[in-house]
């Protein structure tokens, strides 16, 4: 799947999410959640499936506190579909490849960069946060203990992360400008992902499927 065109992967995520909310619960949500979790499992049980399940778990807990069991199942399956498919595409799609696809498709380079920067920020922030945790622990900060202690520790961990990121935004903006990155500029895609007829057809098919499901749902309700 990772060799598929980025737009195909995104279309699949969008279609699964749309269908999860369009199709009647709980069967519809069950089907889409099963599909999303199957994709995540195929991409790597530990690398993708487990993070998706761990992310979804608190939502199920909160839903159970707020709703009755049938509503929890209905909404929970839909949320699980969204979370699993987003985690799946995040693990499968390198931001640089998405930018190349967007630029090749005629998108503005600014929009493409913003989209990709948002996707690539997570692992970078995670690595930086780990460096800060390590450095502060080596200065004697204990991240364990009671709630008050943990909150005090959080300040020493979160503040440097935010400050250093804000500081880097300035430097990165300057670096981009000096390399000719200005709004409206046209960028040459060096290695645009291959977009075959079959994939384009598949994306249209997903769109049609979502439209049909929506029409059927409206008619069925009527």
């Amino acid at each position: 799947m990772s060799r598929r065109h980025p737009f195909t992967l995104l279309a699949l995520v969008a279609a699964l999410t749309a269908l999860a909310w369009i199709l009647p619960a709980p069967a519809g949500g069950l089907g889409t959640a099963a599909a999303a979790l199957a994709l995540a499992a195929a991409a790597g049980p530990r690398r993708v499936l487990v993070p998706a399940l761990v992310t979804a778990a608190p939502f199920w807990l909160f839903l159970l506190l707020l709703h009755d069991v049938p509503s929890t199942i209905a909404i929970g399956l839909r949320l699980t579909t969204m979370i699993a498919s987003v985690v799946w595409v995040g693990a499968l799609l390198p931001p640089g490849r998405l930018v190349e696809a967007m630029v090749a498709a005629g998108w503005g380079v600014t929009a493409a960069y913003l989209f990709a920067a948002a996707l690539s920020a997570v692992p970078l922030l995670k690595a930086r946060a780990q460096r800060i945790v390590d450095a502060q622990r080596c200065r004697g900060l204990s991240p364990r203990g009671g709630l008050g202690r943990r909150l005090r520790a959080l300040r020493a961990l979160a503040l440097p992360l935010v400050l250093s990121v804000l500081h880097e935004v300035d430097e990165r903006a300057l670096a981009l400008e000096t390399r000719g990155f200005v709004p409206g500029a046209r960028r040459t895609p060096l290695a645009p992902p291959r977009d075959g007829t079959g994939e384009r057809a598949a994306r249209w098919l997903l769109l049609v499927a979502c439209g049909a499901a929506l029409a059927w749902r409206i008619a069925w309700r009527g």
Partner: peptide
């Protein structure tokens, strides 16, 4: 733990400026 060893070991790693807050 590192926070316990900090009583005896002082360290500065690369990107140390990122720890300031």
């Amino acid at each position: 733990a590192p926070e316990s060893l900090a009583r005896r070991v002082g360290s500065v790693f690369q990107h140390a400026d990122q720890q300031l807050f």
